[in-house]
Amino acid sequence: MKVINLIDRQVPGASILEDTRVVYMWLIENLYLAIIDEEQRVIGVLTLKDLHHNADALNVIDFDISKPEVSPEQSIFEAFELMKETENDCLPVYDDGKFLGVITMKRITERLVQFVSETQQQYQKVIHDLRNPISNLSSLIKLLDTTVTDQETQEFIKLCTFSCKHAMEILDDLLYVEIDENKPLVKELTELNEFFKICITEQSGLCLLKGIKVETNISNDKFVKEIDRARLKRAIQNVISNAIKFSYPNSTVKMSTKIERNQIILKVLDAGIGIPEIYQNDVFEKFTAAGRIGTNGEPSTGLGLCFSKQCIEQHGGQIYFKSTEGRGTKFYIRL
């Protein structure tokens, strides 16, 4: 995206000798003016901010109207950074010494918002388009599985099934992260200790596969809060499944709750591989390098905790952790 597409070419002008009071009235309507010298050349741009910085000036000639110039072929990102560095809301655009107009922070911001919206729509369309062939492929593999008898081919089919399942999980995670960020919550009153028990129970199958023991100490106290049950369950179960994924087979995962200062805190503790210190600042980022494979080779999209943080914060809560590489991780969810 280049500056040339966002130039305001209809910039009103004012003489460098003009009275400040007259210019002030013009600026209320126009936001900025091209300042013209005696030879009819544009020598700068004047804004209301410039007037406020030198309130005692009587004429335009008394102001510092010099601003960094940008060319029409520069990217809007370069112009945006230059505006931030110089604390200007607009910059003059010149091409080979000829004044073309003005580019503003407002127009850049509006274009970026439009671009993000268009990108999100395209992104979601691509995800939906990818889901269909993968779903069809998965169905065909299931049909093959019913007709194949030799062990080697069955193992190959299992691998294909696993790969399709993982691909669908990645697409689902991508869709959740992109769509749910701005989607309003559908809340209902829920008792959270019982809700957490359900979240934990539904993950028991993952524990059985690795021989992991789950120890729970869920408070019997009642704590009722309005939540979006479907989304918060996914957020909580992402944290629980991570604890299982990165725990060693036949180890123990501990989960407990307590009520403190009108908040409920869920703690999920594992004694697994832990998170290296170099990755800890990026754990909640999309596609983080902290999203490593599990102790049994379980894949990771690097999106689960990003969604969890996003969802928990939408509920007015917090998620944080303490971790030591090689000794395990404690996740805390406060609501």
Rank of each mutant, 00 (worst) to 15 (best):
residue 1 M to L: 04
residue 2 K to Y: 12
residue 3 V to A: 03
residue 4 I to L: 09
residue 9 R to T: 14
residue 13 G to V: 15
residue 16 I to A: 01
residue 19 D to Q: 14
residue 22 V to E: 14
residue 22 V to N: 14
residue 25 M to Q: 09
residue 25 M to H: 09
residue 27 L to M: 05
residue 50 D to I: 05
residue 51 L to F: 08
residue 53 H to M: 07
residue 56 D to T: 08
residue 56 D to A: 12
residue 59 N to C: 11
residue 60 V to S: 06
residue 65 I to V: 12
residue 66 S to H: 12
residue 68 P to A: 06
residue 69 E to R: 14
residue 75 S to H: 11
residue 76 I to K: 02
residue 76 I to V: 14
residue 80 F to K: 07
residue 84 K to S: 09
residue 85 E to W: 04
residue 93 V to Q: 01
residue 97 G to Y: 09
residue 100 L to P: 00
residue 101 G to T: 10
residue 102 V to P: 01
residue 103 I to D: 01
residue 105 M to Q: 15
residue 105 M to R: 15
residue 123 Y to V: 04
residue 124 Q to M: 15
residue 124 Q to K: 13
residue 125 K to D: 07
residue 126 V to P: 00
residue 126 V to G: 00
residue 130 L to T: 03
residue 136 N to Q: 15
residue 139 S to A: 14
residue 144 L to G: 07
residue 144 L to D: 07
residue 156 F to L: 13
residue 156 F to W: 05
residue 159 L to H: 13
residue 159 L to C: 08
residue 169 E to N: 14
residue 175 L to H: 12
residue 175 L to I: 00
residue 189 L to H: 01
residue 193 N to L: 01
residue 196 F to I: 10
residue 201 T to K: 13
residue 202 E to C: 00
residue 204 S to T: 15
residue 209 L to N: 14
residue 217 N to H: 12
residue 220 N to W: 04
residue 225 K to Y: 10
residue 230 A to C: 00
residue 247 S to H: 07
residue 247 S to I: 06
residue 252 T to K: 12
residue 258 K to S: 13
residue 259 I to T: 07
residue 265 I to S: 01
residue 271 A to Y: 10
residue 276 P to W: 03
residue 287 F to Y: 15
residue 287 F to T: 04
residue 290 A to Y: 09
residue 292 R to I: 15
residue 294 G to E: 02
residue 301 T to N: 07
residue 303 L to I: 06
residue 319 I to G: 04
residue 320 Y to S: 13
residue 322 K to Y: 08
residue 327 R to E: 14
residue 332 Y to I: 08
